[in-house]
């Protein structure tokens, strides 16, 4: 059971919570822009790129395994 729960934690959060937070923020930004009638497609790629850059920066400052 613990292994199953650990699987879902690894699956959804992994090594860095930043990725999940960035993705949720990016999707929210798309929804808000769409609701406001503005072009929204660019928000998710920008959020993904920024989140990955931040996550990598944190990883190389605290190298693990």
């Amino acid at each position: 059971m613990m292994a199953f729960l650990r699987f879902w934690k690894d699956f959804l959060i992994g090594d860095d919570l930043t990725l999940a937070v960035g993705v949720v923020a990016g999707i929210a930004a798309v929804a808000i822009l769409h609701a406001a009638g503005a072009p929204a497609w660019w928000a998710l790629p920008v959020a993904v790129a920024a989140t990955m850059a931040l996550s990598l920066r944190r990883a190389i400052r605290r190298p693990k395994g």
């Binding site: 699956f11 990725l19 999940a20 993705v23 993904v48 990598l56 990883a59 190298p63 395994g65």
Partner: peptide, 28 residues
């Protein structure tokens, strides 16, 4: 698509992050 795409995106980014760190020499 929001839920499944979001989870798939998080999952894909985790794989990509690990592959980038391994390729860069920061992860075994």
């Amino acid at each position: 698509r929001v839920i499944v795409g979001g989870v798939l995106l998080i999952f894909g980014l985790q794989w990509l992050r690990k592959a980038i760190l391994r390729s860069g020499g920061y992860k075994a």
